[in-house]
């Protein structure tokens, strides 16, 4: 069974390191916050200017002056900090934020990512994604393996305008966990009940497959 979006988030949550600062992008990455393993302390940064982001507010307690970068109403944790956009990107560009999790329309086998523009169709802008991928030490992409027409989003080369070059470290999809290595994309794990052959067929990029590929533990 391929993973659903929540299970992708659950698998990514296993990558969280104790006592780190993490930026979660819009979409599946936001769900990662629901699955922080016990004993792991994380502070979430949102690039519009908050560190120590908490859960959504209870109904009736929403504050228009307290949102995340997805413009969703949020709360803050005890010990949170608020700052301006330049300070926020000093944290990002200065590599103080240790992990970035974000979505993608396409990734390539050398670690390029495209997630901000479909020429002539969707032109929403890059927001903070280009700053994030240019600087973060560790970048994990959360995405569906294929698009709605079943075509691979994991390519030899991105076809859409890219957001960053040679920057992503891992990709977690509904089918597999992949690692970007110097030699190319390495298949690390497969979704429960999904075969290596199925993953190969759903992937346009070449995959490095060594030894037995274990199922993810969700």
């Amino acid at each position: 069974m391929a993973l659903d979006k929540n299970q992708i988030a659950q698998r990514i949550a296993q990558e969280l390191q104790h006592n780190t600062y993490v930026n979660l992008g819009i979409g599946i990455p936001t769900l990662v916050a629901n699955y922080i393993p016990k004993g792991i302390d994380i502070e979430f940064q949102s690039e519009n200017g908050v560190l120590g982001m908490g859960p959504f507010p209870f109904e009736g307690e929403e504050d228009p002056d307290m949102i995340n970068a997805g413009k969703q109403t949020i709360t803050t944790m005890p010990g949170a900090a608020i700052f301006d956009s330049a300070t926020s990107f000093a944290m990002i560009r200065g590599q103080h934020v240790q992990l970035t999790v974000l979505g993608a329309m396409e990734v390539s086998e050398n670690g390029d990512i495209a997630n901000w523009k479909i020429p002539g169709k969707m032109v929403k802008g890059m927001g903070g994604a280009m700053d994030l991928v240019a600087s973060a030490d560790n970048i994990i992409v959360a995405m569906m393996h294929t698009n709605r027409s079943g075509e691979s989003k994991i390519l030899k080369q991105c076809t859409l305008p890219i957001t960053g070059v040679n920057c992503i470290k891992k990709v977690v999809t509904n089918l597999a966990v992949l690692e970007v290595t110097k030699d190319g994309l390495k298949l690390l794990e497969r979704a429960p009940g999904v075969s290596v052959e199925e993953i190969k067929n759903a992937t346009e990029a070449d995959l490095i497959i060594r030894g037995e590929i274990h199922e993810m533990r969700i």
Binding site: E47, A86, M130, D131, V165
Partner: peptide, 26 residues
């Protein structure tokens, strides 16, 4: 890029005419 936008405004107000950033390379 959002961080470049923020820093370009900050720089404008701070009397710094330009700066180098990794964001957007390539």
């Amino acid at each position: 890029p959002q961080g470049s936008l923020a820093e370009r405004c900050r720089a404008g107000g701070a009397g710094i005419p330009a700066f180098f950033t990794p964001a957007g390379f390539g």
